[in-house]
Nucleic acid binder design. Structure first.
Lengths: 254, 254
DNA sequence: GGTTCTCATTGACGCAAATCAAGTGGGAAC
DNA sequence: GTTCCCACTTGATTTGCGTCAATGAGAACC
């Protein structure tokens, strides 16, 4: 059985109902609409937009809000005193940004693409959290998911070669696209590459030059194609997982 | 003002009350005794011991228990198909092991030193969790702390040199020792080094040879001393932070 | 059209850490 | 004592990635 066939299981094709309140695709996953029945948070929410490259919060800054990514991509990154930078989080639509009970941000949050956030007043949100165990449980689940992602990322940073890092990153994006969109896997996986080379380098613990070289190499080997500058096609997902140094079994199973 | 002086603030010297039920030093931090007043979990807890090197759970295995580390050190690590290994977690006394609502372990958990765990039946613990928001909140806090640690670790893995990695790791242990024990900072910081070179290499994304060489170099530079094979002394914490590539301001402030 | 951005690619070179390979020291068993 | 075993150290060599530098390709603007 080929990996392409595997990826066409119904669980990957399911369409999510879009949340009417905040625009997030999967209402059940939306961090504030999901947990409660009829918009408990409606009275304290507001929206804010950011341009690509715009700083949302700086490391060490006090934040008076928490929220969800409605659309766009947000990066979280840490910077060393001498300027070396490492991305430590990459948030997409429906991801929760900001840490309850932790008003000081330990990293910079920057808009990668045009971003729209749905925000809540921190104090009011935390008070609501106290009386809404189901919301707390949702946050715990999301935090556990982030921790899982962080640990996979640590394996990538500590033990993978530059080529494997790039392939792993593309596999993450391909997986995301496969579970979010209605994919026609017969023709491979298409997805947008929202990051610049520099941002990818920050994500992967590499330099832009190495990122560029390894992408060129993967193209040469037919593992990925770039029909458009910012659009990527993966003809064979199993080949990509192989290049990522990952077990091809279970890659798309949920 | 020197960094050594800074580290003698009262908050670093405070002694914690030891939990009478499970032996964990700080009862307020103990993941199950802390949240409720009189041992709600007492009826479902049991203890288990492990020898150094002994596997607690294997990646992919289903776990029927959750719990706290009572004493000893537990490592969590991921292994690639070809055998490359990266540690992704290091748990000490009072840390929570196992993930609620996630019965399949995504990594190996191994006893580094002799370990004693206080365990709870998973099903019963999760049922209790549902009715005990304060316990859930405690778990959320601990998960957020782990996520913070994971993100610092990602910066280490992605951007630090071998020397900086070693120094950072020793600084983490020194900080732990300083906040847990009654430290006499006048004579520097003493702490045990519970890991072998191989385990340190797995933690830091290095090889044993590189770990060995960099420790030798740090000894030669007077940043650390090893009066005993497994005992470490840091004469000047600021010098260690400097070698770690970290800002020496705020290193020990909580 | 040209100029000036920014982002990406490609090449030449150097170095830090991995790899390969001995060699050391210390503790346990006998 | 001797032997074995293990963790650790040290040295020689290789290599993957970083660094430095030049070039290319669009997009925005005058």
């Amino acid at each position: 059985m080929s990996g392409t066939e595997r990826m066409m299981t119904p669980s990957l094709r399911k369409q999510h109902e879009r949340c009417a309140d905040c625009g997030i695709r999967n209402r059940a996953v939306c961090s504030y609409c999901g947990p409660q029945e009829l918009g408990l948070l409606d009275t304290i929410k507001f929206y804010r937009s950011y341009d690509p490259g715009q700083e949302i919060v700086a490391a060490g800054e006090q934040t008076d809000f928490l929220g969800s990514v409605v659309e766009g991509v947000v990066s979280l990154s840490k910077t060393m005193p001498d300027g070396r930078r490492q991305m430590v989080g990459l948030m997409f639509a429906s991801d929760f940004v900001g840490r309850p009970m932790r008003p000081i941000a330990p990293y910079d949050a920057v808009a990668v693409t045009p971003v729209r956030l749905c925000l809540f007043n921190r104090g009011r949100f935390e008070r609501l959290l106290k009386d809404t165990p189901v919301l707390e449980k949702r946050l715990l689940e999301m935090t556990l998911d982030e921790l899982d992602a962080a640990r996979d990322w640590m394996l990538l940073l500590g033990r993978k070669s530059a080529r494997e890092k790039i392939a792993s990153f593309l596999a993450i994006l391909a997986r995301r696209a496969a579970s979010a969109d209605n994919v026609d896997a017969d023709d491979g996986f298409f997805f947008d590459l929202p990051l610049t080379r520099e941002q990818m380098a920050d994500y992967l613990g590499l330099t832009i030059e190495t990122v560029s070289r390894q992408i060129t190499a993967l193209k040469k080997d037919g593992v990925v194609e770039f029909p458009d500058a910012r659009r990527c096609r993966v003809p064979d997902f199993v080949a990509l997982l192989d290049a990522a140094g990952e077990d091809s079994d279970g890659g798309m199973i949920d």
